[in-house]
Computed example of a mutant assay.
Amino acid sequence: MARPAEPGRNALLEAGFDVAVRAGLRGLSVNAVVAAAGMAKGSFYHHFPDRRGYIVALHRRYHEELAVAILAAIGDRPPGRDRLRVGITAYLDACLRTRGTKAFLAQARTDADLLDEVNARSLSFVTLIAPDLAELGWTDAAAVAHLTIAMAADTALAEMYAAAPRPDLRAALTALLERTPG
Protein backbone atom coordinates (compact mmCIF):
# COMPACT_ATOMS: atom_id res chain seq x y z
CA MET A 1 0.00 0.00 0.00
CA ALA A 2 1.32 3.48 -0.88
CA ARG A 3 2.36 5.75 1.96
CA PRO A 4 1.11 9.31 2.48
CA ALA A 5 2.82 12.12 0.58
CA GLU A 6 6.11 13.17 2.10
CA PRO A 7 9.39 14.57 0.77
CA GLY A 8 10.65 11.22 -0.57
CA ARG A 9 7.40 10.39 -2.34
CA ASN A 10 7.18 13.86 -3.80
CA ALA A 11 10.81 13.72 -4.97
CA LEU A 12 10.08 10.46 -6.77
CA LEU A 13 7.00 11.94 -8.44
CA GLU A 14 8.92 15.05 -9.51
CA ALA A 15 11.69 12.86 -10.92
CA GLY A 16 9.08 10.84 -12.78
CA PHE A 17 7.81 13.92 -14.57
CA ASP A 18 11.37 14.67 -15.68
CA VAL A 19 11.88 11.12 -16.92
CA ALA A 20 8.48 11.11 -18.68
CA VAL A 21 9.38 14.32 -20.51
CA ARG A 22 12.69 12.85 -21.69
CA ALA A 23 11.77 9.22 -22.27
CA GLY A 24 7.98 8.95 -22.31
CA LEU A 25 5.96 6.41 -20.35
CA ARG A 26 7.81 3.46 -21.87
CA GLY A 27 11.12 4.83 -20.58
CA LEU A 28 9.68 5.39 -17.13
CA SER A 29 11.41 2.52 -15.34
CA VAL A 30 11.90 2.28 -11.61
CA ASN A 31 15.67 2.47 -12.18
CA ALA A 32 15.34 5.66 -14.27
CA VAL A 33 13.12 7.30 -11.65
CA VAL A 34 15.33 6.53 -8.66
CA ALA A 35 18.41 7.63 -10.60
CA ALA A 36 16.74 10.94 -11.49
CA ALA A 37 15.64 11.40 -7.87
CA GLY A 38 19.05 10.43 -6.50
CA MET A 39 17.44 7.85 -4.25
CA ALA A 40 17.87 4.14 -3.54
CA LYS A 41 15.58 1.67 -5.26
CA GLY A 42 14.20 0.57 -1.90
CA SER A 43 12.87 4.10 -1.38
CA PHE A 44 10.69 3.67 -4.43
CA TYR A 45 9.05 0.55 -3.03
CA HIS A 46 8.65 2.23 0.34
CA HIS A 47 6.25 4.69 -1.34
CA PHE A 48 4.76 2.75 -4.26
CA PRO A 49 3.75 -0.91 -4.52
CA ASP A 50 5.01 -1.26 -8.10
CA ARG A 51 5.63 0.61 -11.36
CA ARG A 52 1.93 0.54 -12.27
CA GLY A 53 0.93 2.15 -8.97
CA TYR A 54 3.60 4.78 -9.52
CA ILE A 55 2.44 5.62 -13.04
CA VAL A 56 -1.16 5.88 -11.83
CA ALA A 57 0.01 8.31 -9.12
CA LEU A 58 1.86 10.39 -11.73
CA HIS A 59 -1.18 10.43 -14.00
CA ARG A 60 -3.42 11.54 -11.14
CA ARG A 61 -1.03 14.29 -10.11
CA TYR A 62 -0.80 15.57 -13.69
CA HIS A 63 -4.58 15.76 -14.05
CA GLU A 64 -5.05 17.23 -10.58
CA GLU A 65 -2.76 20.10 -11.63
CA LEU A 66 -4.89 20.62 -14.74
CA ALA A 67 -8.12 20.51 -12.72
CA VAL A 68 -6.83 23.07 -10.23
CA ALA A 69 -5.93 25.46 -13.07
CA ILE A 70 -9.31 25.00 -14.76
CA LEU A 71 -11.36 25.39 -11.59
CA ALA A 72 -9.41 28.49 -10.57
CA ALA A 73 -10.03 30.04 -13.99
CA ILE A 74 -13.76 29.33 -14.18
CA GLY A 75 -14.31 30.35 -10.57
CA ASP A 76 -17.98 30.87 -9.83
CA ARG A 77 -19.04 31.63 -13.41
CA PRO A 78 -22.44 30.19 -14.21
CA PRO A 79 -22.63 27.41 -16.82
CA GLY A 80 -22.59 28.68 -20.37
CA ARG A 81 -20.51 30.09 -23.20
CA ASP A 82 -18.14 32.20 -21.09
CA ARG A 83 -17.38 29.46 -18.57
CA LEU A 84 -16.79 26.91 -21.35
CA ARG A 85 -14.45 29.22 -23.25
CA VAL A 86 -12.52 30.19 -20.11
CA GLY A 87 -12.24 26.54 -19.03
CA ILE A 88 -10.97 25.34 -22.40
CA THR A 89 -8.44 28.17 -22.53
CA ALA A 90 -7.26 27.37 -18.99
CA TYR A 91 -6.91 23.69 -19.92
CA LEU A 92 -4.90 24.43 -23.05
CA ASP A 93 -2.68 26.97 -21.31
CA ALA A 94 -2.04 24.54 -18.45
CA CYS A 95 -1.14 21.76 -20.90
CA LEU A 96 1.45 24.05 -22.49
CA ARG A 97 3.16 24.79 -19.20
CA THR A 98 2.71 21.45 -17.42
CA ARG A 99 5.48 18.88 -17.66
CA GLY A 100 4.45 15.53 -18.99
CA THR A 101 1.73 16.67 -21.37
CA LYS A 102 2.87 14.37 -24.18
CA ALA A 103 3.22 11.37 -21.89
CA PHE A 104 -0.08 11.86 -20.13
CA LEU A 105 -2.25 13.03 -23.04
CA ALA A 106 -0.94 10.91 -25.90
CA GLN A 107 0.92 7.94 -24.50
CA ALA A 108 -1.42 7.31 -21.56
CA ARG A 109 -4.27 6.53 -23.96
CA THR A 110 -2.38 3.53 -25.29
CA ASP A 111 -1.04 2.27 -21.96
CA ALA A 112 -3.29 -0.55 -20.73
CA ASP A 113 -2.30 0.17 -17.12
CA LEU A 114 -3.82 3.64 -17.37
CA LEU A 115 -7.06 3.01 -19.27
CA ASP A 116 -9.21 3.11 -16.12
CA GLU A 117 -7.49 6.33 -15.01
CA VAL A 118 -7.86 7.95 -18.44
CA ASN A 119 -11.55 7.08 -18.50
CA ALA A 120 -12.10 8.34 -14.95
CA ARG A 121 -10.40 11.67 -15.73
CA SER A 122 -12.35 12.07 -18.95
CA LEU A 123 -15.59 11.42 -17.07
CA SER A 124 -14.73 14.06 -14.47
CA PHE A 125 -14.19 16.64 -17.24
CA VAL A 126 -17.39 15.50 -19.00
CA THR A 127 -19.26 16.17 -15.75
CA LEU A 128 -17.63 19.59 -15.48
CA ILE A 129 -18.47 20.87 -18.98
CA ALA A 130 -21.78 19.13 -19.75
CA PRO A 131 -23.78 21.89 -17.99
CA ASP A 132 -22.07 24.50 -20.19
CA LEU A 133 -23.01 22.59 -23.33
CA ALA A 134 -26.59 22.07 -22.12
CA GLU A 135 -26.81 25.83 -21.56
CA LEU A 136 -25.70 26.31 -25.19
CA GLY A 137 -28.59 24.10 -26.32
CA TRP A 138 -26.92 20.74 -26.85
CA THR A 139 -29.54 18.09 -26.04
CA ASP A 140 -27.00 15.28 -25.53
CA ALA A 141 -24.56 17.45 -23.60
CA ALA A 142 -22.63 14.50 -22.13
CA ALA A 143 -21.87 13.04 -25.57
CA VAL A 144 -20.83 16.44 -26.90
CA ALA A 145 -18.71 16.97 -23.77
CA HIS A 146 -16.93 13.68 -24.45
CA LEU A 147 -16.14 14.80 -28.01
CA THR A 148 -15.12 18.25 -26.77
CA ILE A 149 -12.57 16.69 -24.45
CA ALA A 150 -11.12 14.71 -27.35
CA MET A 151 -10.89 17.86 -29.48
CA ALA A 152 -9.31 19.84 -26.65
CA ALA A 153 -6.75 17.08 -25.99
CA ASP A 154 -5.85 16.97 -29.68
CA THR A 155 -5.48 20.75 -29.69
CA ALA A 156 -3.25 20.52 -26.62
CA LEU A 157 -1.01 18.02 -28.40
CA ALA A 158 -0.80 20.20 -31.51
CA GLU A 159 0.18 23.14 -29.31
CA MET A 160 2.74 21.05 -27.47
CA TYR A 161 4.40 20.06 -30.76
CA ALA A 162 4.29 23.69 -31.91
CA ALA A 163 5.58 24.84 -28.48
CA ALA A 164 3.05 27.66 -28.63
CA PRO A 165 -0.69 28.30 -28.60
CA ARG A 166 -2.56 27.57 -31.84
CA PRO A 167 -5.13 30.38 -32.05
CA ASP A 168 -6.62 28.82 -35.20
CA LEU A 169 -7.41 25.54 -33.43
CA ARG A 170 -8.66 27.28 -30.30
CA ALA A 171 -11.00 29.47 -32.33
CA ALA A 172 -12.26 26.51 -34.37
CA LEU A 173 -12.93 24.48 -31.24
CA THR A 174 -15.01 27.17 -29.56
CA ALA A 175 -16.77 28.05 -32.83
CA LEU A 176 -17.83 24.43 -33.31
CA LEU A 177 -19.27 24.28 -29.80
CA GLU A 178 -21.11 27.57 -30.10
CA ARG A 179 -22.90 26.69 -33.33
CA THR A 180 -26.60 26.18 -32.97
CA PRO A 181 -27.11 22.48 -32.25
CA GLY A 182 -28.95 20.70 -35.01
Rank of each mutant, 00 (worst) to 15 (best):
R170G: 06
A67V: 04
A172H: 11
E6Y: 03
T127V: 12
A103Q: 09
A35S: 14
L147R: 13
L169R: 13
L96T: 12
A163P: 06
G53R: 14
G182I: 08
L13R: 04
R83P: 07
T148F: 04
R60V: 01
R51M: 11
R99P: 13
T180F: 08
M39L: 15
R52W: 02
R60N: 14
V34F: 12
Y45Q: 11
A94I: 04
G137K: 08
D116V: 06
A103T: 11
V86D: 08
D82L: 14
G8A: 11
E117R: 10
R81Q: 11
A141P: 00
R60L: 05
L28Q: 12
A130R: 01
P131H: 03
A37V: 09
E178N: 11
G87A: 04
F125P: 01
E65P: 01
V33Y: 03
F125Q: 12
A40E: 15
E65W: 00
A108G: 05
A153Q: 15
S29T: 15
G182K: 07
Y161Q: 05
A158P: 01
T110C: 03
I88Q: 01
C95R: 14
G75P: 09
A2I: 02
V19W: 08
L128A: 07
E135S: 12
L128I: 03
T180N: 02
A94W: 04
I74A: 02
L105P: 01
T89L: 04
F125M: 13
T174C: 11
E159K: 13
P7H: 10
A134H: 12
R26E: 15
R51H: 12
R121L: 07
R179A: 14
S29V: 10
D168E: 13
I129R: 05
L28W: 13
T127Y: 00
